[in-house]
């Protein structure tokens, strides 16, 4: 995977330095992020938690290369994202990030397999290779036999598993999950979280964005946001973390 190659030795996977994000609101300005600095190491399982309006969604958009900060620096695998143009950001999303959304965000006209194939299409892989990888990814989430189903023919939990398969298929450096359990009942939600924990144990970096402390408790490290600032950064289940404890703290 090219993402790994670009990561300079000793660099954290993600480094946010004094990130500000300001939205104009009429005459006023909304400071969605107000000086956030954060480093995330490889193989970590981080939850970013906060109430609505805390800036956690903005934080996730910036980490996910879906948005650029107003000021500050963001290095993803050692590369400065804020200096990338739109197509370079698209390439970074495609190769480095796997998204899991609250609303699954599957394309309704495409079958489960075709949905999982999408990131590989944009990576330019050939059809046969794509098919094979997508099938493997679906089998990994236990939906091998549902490959030909449309999203509307799947339950909520199954749809979320398809979206996990889609996030995994490109073998990204980071799994970015935005409220992955928000639309699921507690039992299926727990299954999804178990799955994310297992992915982390298998060596994936997982970033979880949630407002639910119970969900965040599954992570090794919990970063709390409030009013656009980091208010606490706690490493839970101490001793399990393979990564160093290095973490920048906001005010």
């Amino acid at each position: 995977m090219t993402g790994g190659r670009k990561s300079a030795e000793g660099q954290p996977l993600i480094r946010l330095r004094d990130i500000h994000k300001v939205y104009p609101m009429g005459d006023d300005e909304l400071h969605a992020l107000d000086g956030v600095s954060l480093e995330i190491e490889k193989n970590d399982f981080v939850a970013i938690i906060g109430q609505s309006g805390s800036g956690k969604s903005t934080c996730m958009n910036i980490i996910g290369c879906l948005d650029v900060p107003t000021s500050g620096e963001y290095f993803l695998e050692g590369r400065d994202v804020s200096r990338m143009d739109e197509d370079e950001q698209a390439a970074a999303r495609n190769r480095t990030l796997g998204f899991i959304f609250q609303q699954y965000n599957l394309i309704p006209k495409l079958t489960a397999l075709e949905n999982v194939e999408l990131p590989l299409i944009y990576r330019g892989l050939h059809e046969r290779e794509r098919r094979e990888l997508a099938r493997q990814s679906l089998e990994r989430v236990g939906l091998g036999e549902k490959a030909r189903n449309l999203p509307s023919q799947l339950s909520g939990g199954q749809q979320q598993r398809v979206s996990i398969a889609r996030a995994l298929v490109g073998n990204p450096s980071i799994i970015l999950a935005d409220e992955p359990t928000g639309a699921l009942d507690s039992r299926t939600g727990a299954e999804v979280l178990d799955f994310l924990a297992r992915l982390n144990e298998e060596g994936n970096t997982v970033i979880l964005i949630t407002h639910d402390m119970g969900v965040a408790g599954r992570a090794r490290r919990v970063v709390s946001l409030s009013d656009g600032r980091i208010v606490s950064d706690v490493r839970g289940r101490a001793g399990e973390g393979a990564a160093g404890a290095a973490a920048g703290c906001g005010a």
Binding site: G64, L66, E86, D87, A90, A91, R93, N94, R95, F99, N105, L106, I107, L118, P119, Y122, R123, R166
Partner: peptide
């Protein structure tokens, strides 16, 4: 619009 957003999030460039 939403479909386009999903495709872009998954790495679709403008040209695609």
């Amino acid at each position: 619009t939403r479909e386009i957003g999903i495709r872009k999030a998954l790495g679709a460039r403008r040209r695609a």
